[in-house]
């Protein structure tokens, strides 16, 4: 009885791996044979969380220049191309006005200082992401392990349904060969580029989290951006949220964004 249940669980587990993974698993299995097995693991320095979240203290950013280091750090690190042609624009993290970032909270009369501050916007890594719901191939998906909304660049068919679904305009499409928008000498050799015809966006720097580093924008913010586990009451993020009044973008849509703003 017990063993048959275990067998069922195992089969269900294999089935859950899905169509795509199966041929590859078969390829590695015979080499493993009966001897020692191959293993996949997270790596020793990995930072983990149940749901990564970010708090941006907008009071600390007064001018456009204050935001530049973060935008530049991100775009340089991830080989985000720059195009003069506005239609081909690609951005992972960028600056906008209060009334664009928070259209439903923009009163006619607000603190002048707050109104003229630049606001940093990026993918919200929603807990209920509409882009993931829309994607017809699971090329964009919410990672079970840490709640990051990821892109599988090898699977994306470029239908741009996710771009229509995202209520924050966080997604960019490679309308042309991205290499054309990069300066060859400045390419980060450690991080892949993208190909034309796929959608891209912020990934909360999963490649850095895997190596025990904070996201690039957090590191460049000099403490003005806090990053941590939303589900851990002891995390720095939760502490900052306890002590400060924060708002989120378009909260009424039920997407549960994980980027919070102290205004």
């Amino acid at each position: 009885m017990k063993s048959s249940r275990r067998r069922f669980m195992k089969l269900a587990g294999i089935a859950a791996l899905g169509l795509g993974a199966q041929p590859a698993i078969k390829a590695i299995a015979p080499a493993a044979g009966n001897g020692p097995q191959t293993q996949f693991s997270q790596g020793p320095n990995v930072l983990t969380a149940r749901q990564w979240a970010m708090v941006i203290d907008t009071r600390r950013f007064k001018t456009t220049e204050d935001l530049e280091p973060m935008i530049e750090a991100c775009h340089k690190l991830h080989n985000v191309p720059h195009f003069e042609e506005k239609n081909h624009e690609i951005k992972w993290i960028w600056e906008t006005h209060f009334h664009n970032a928070f259209p439903d909270s923009a009163n006619r009369f607000i603190s002048e200082e707050a109104e003229h501050r630049p606001y940093l916007v990026l993918c919200n890594h929603c807990q209920n992401p509409p882009c993931v719901r829309a994607c017809p191939t699971k090329a964009t998906f919410k990672r079970d392990s840490d709640g990051v909304v990821m892109m599988d660049m090898h699977r994306c068919i470029g239908c741009r349904f996710c771009m229509a679904a995202c209520p924050y305009g966080s997604r960019s499409f490679n309308f042309v060969e991205p290499l054309k928008g990069l300066v060859e000498k400045e390419i980060n050799l450690k991080y892949p580029r993208r190909m034309k015809g796929v959608v891209e966006k912020c990934t909360f720097c999963v490649e850095r989290l895997a190596e025990g580093q904070m996201p690039a924008c957090v590191e460049a913010s000099g403490g003005a951006i806090v990053f941590g586990d939303l589900e851990d009451p002891e995390s720095e993020v939760r502490q900052v949220l306890r002590e400060n009044f924060t708002i989120r973008r378009k909260q009424s849509l039920g997407t549960e964004p994980c980027v919070y703003y102290i205004v």
Partner: peptide
């Protein structure tokens, strides 16, 4: 690539 992108596993230990 499936393991890295979709499962967040980055290390591979061979036989």
């Amino acid at each position: 690539r499936l393991k890295v992108v979709r499962s967040g596993l980055r290390d591979f230990t061979n036989t």
